[in-house]
Design a protein around this nucleic acid. Structure first.
Length: 503
DNA sequence: AAACAACCTGCTTT
DNA sequence: AAAAGCAGGTTGT
């Protein structure tokens, strides 16, 4: 192991390249692990490694920039295109700072929280990859989605960088500073996870059976994946082209087209539209955004049950409030709601529910309940805005502390009856175990039927559109004054170097 | 049209 | 320790 480490370390002594994006434009911590892509692994204190367009890329935050190294390339990945590929992936033609200023002038809540989450960018991902990532996301949490996507790539994708030659693994071994046994164990455990694969093509994915996917822990999403693969392959041009063409049609049209595919409803469609199809106004309304909405933007909808119509109402409210790039504004607001991120907000800006960390901290200090409720918070924010003479209309959110998600009450009620047979999960924790899927974990009633289902049979046009370059459709609102490079000082360099691998 | 039950799983909380 | 709760939802009734 050590030998492999040394060998590859010297083999990969390349240098960092500047991406030319200041933290206000791109902050990796708010962009990569916050649920819009599940293809990145944190491989250091301020460093992530992932695969972009057939390249294994390491990106690292510095105080003034983000820099990158392409540590491996697959077929047809020319190094001359690295920079363009990454600028495209990080959507750097848009100027987030400028947008942020605009949103701040339009909305009190955004204004009060955005400085705690600078550089939360919306990526421009590959549509195929993005689509399957978000089929996996339904009724699921980030860490499991991440594992599922990883297995999908490992099982059906093309390896670009093997574990034995991975720089990341060498770092793991080198940094391990403990006794050699522990280090060896650590490395052994780490190695299988440190290979990098391209995301499988539709053709590669067509090799996956529902049974195999279930055996890998995809649950009921297994048939969504196989169903969508088939549906896409049946499109003229093989599916990939069809999907890319959605970049050139209006949001609504793209969303409706996506919703024809099994496993894709309005929320997942909005994710794909926002994160891969250039629909900057798309608002994925999930449980977090729903709470945001009834708290600040559509209080009149409180108590309603979530459905397509309600989602559209929420979306419209966001678009009216934030404008054509509302999806980007939503992204920052969404992140501020995540349990893993909301602790960054000062107490008085934090929404009602407290996270574990917050709870235990309070418990330790013998603190009592939180002081301000939503209405007070809103008043403070409104006052702040009005003081600045911004005559924007601020929704008055009166009322009280409905801290609990509405759907929770709903679920609590229904679970009384359900549960029962779902409780006994048939053992195969950790996914891999057996190869041949137990013919019927939860296949209670129908299932099995590979039928196209009602959604597949309705319409299916959307094949037209001009084939102009998709990137051209985007506006260049920023003349990017390259606050570039600025060689990070040695101290930071050192610190970053010392960072250990973290999964 | 709207509401709700069912669905896979892993991790946390009671 | 067993059970319920929850996680960036979709589908069928």
């Amino acid at each position: 192991m050590a030998l492999a480490a040394a060998a590859s370390a010297s083999a990969h002594s390349m240098t960092w390249q500047s991406l030319g994006a200041a933290p206000a434009e791109l902050t990796l911590d708010f962009t990569l692990p916050t649920g819009q892509s599940f293809r990145w692994r944190q491989t250091g204190q301020a460093e992530f490694t992932g695969v972009v367009d057939n390249r294994v890329v390491k990106v690292q935050q510095t105080p003034s920039d983000v820099r990158y190294q392409v540590i491996a390339r697959g077929d047809n990945a020319a190094s001359s295109e690295d920079a363009a590929v990454l600028r495209n992936y990080f959507n750097l033609q848009a100027c987030l700072e400028e947008l942020s200023q605009e949103w701040s002038s339009r909305d009190a809540r955004y204004k009060s929280i955005h400085s705690y989450f600078p550089g939360a960018r919306v990526l421009r991902q590959d549509p195929v990859e993005c689509l399957f990532e978000f089929i996996c996301s339904s009724n699921n949490h980030i860490s499991r989605i991440h594992g599922m996507v990883e297995r999908l790539c490992r099982d059906y994708g093309t390896p670009i960088l093997h574990a034995s030659t991975s720089q990341a693994s060498t770092a793991a071994a080198a940094v391990g500073g403990k006794d050699t046994v522990a280090a060896a164990e650590e490395e052994q455990k780490a190695v299988p996870d440190l290979a990098f694969y391209s995301f499988p093509t539709l053709e590669q994915l067509s090799a996956a059976s529902e049974a195999a996917l279930r055996a890998e822990g995809f649950g009921y999403r297994a048939k969504f994946i196989t169903g969508t693969v088939q549906a896409l392959l049946a499109k003229p041009g093989g599916g990939k082209q069809w999907l890319y063409s959605l970049r050139n049609v209006p949001y609504k049209e793209a969303s409706e087209a996506l919703c024809e595919l099994p496993g894709i409803g309005p929320k997942v469609a909005a994710c794909i539209c926002l994160f891969a199809l250039d629909k900057h106004e798309a608002i994925p309304v999930d449980t977090h955004v729903w709470q945001l909405a009834v708290r600040y933007y559509t209080p009149q909808l409180k108590g309603k049950t979530m459905n397509k119509k309600i989602m559209v109402a929420v979306e419209d409210a966001f678009i009216e409030r934030f404008g054509p790039w509302a999806g980007w504004a939503h992204n920052t607001l969404f992140i501020s709601e995540l349990a893993t991120q909301r602790e960054r907000l000062p107490e008085q800006l934090r929404p009602g529910g407290k996270s574990k960390a917050s709870k235990s901290r309070k418990a330790a200090k013998g603190d009592t309940e939180e002081v301000s409720d939503q209405s007070e918070m809103m008043k403070v924010e409104q006052a702040a805005v009005q003081k600045r003479t911004l005559n924007m209309d601020i929704d008055t959110v009166d009322d009280s502390t409905e801290s609990r998600p509405i759907q929770r009450a709903r679920r609590g009620a229904k679970h009384k009856q359900t549960k029962v047979q779902g409780a006994g999960n048939n053992g195969n924790t950790n996914g891999q175990s057996d190869a041949v899927v137990a013919e019927e974990p939860g296949v209670s009633k129908k299932a099995k039927s590979q039928k196209p289902t009602s959604k597949a049979k309705s319409k299916q046009t959307a094949g037209k559109v001009n084939s102009s370059d998709a990137a051209g459709a985007q506006s260049d609102i920023c003349t990017r004054s390259s606050s570039l490079a600025v060689a990070a000082d040695a101290a930071i360099d050192q610190a970053l170097q010392d960072a250990s691998i973290r999964l």
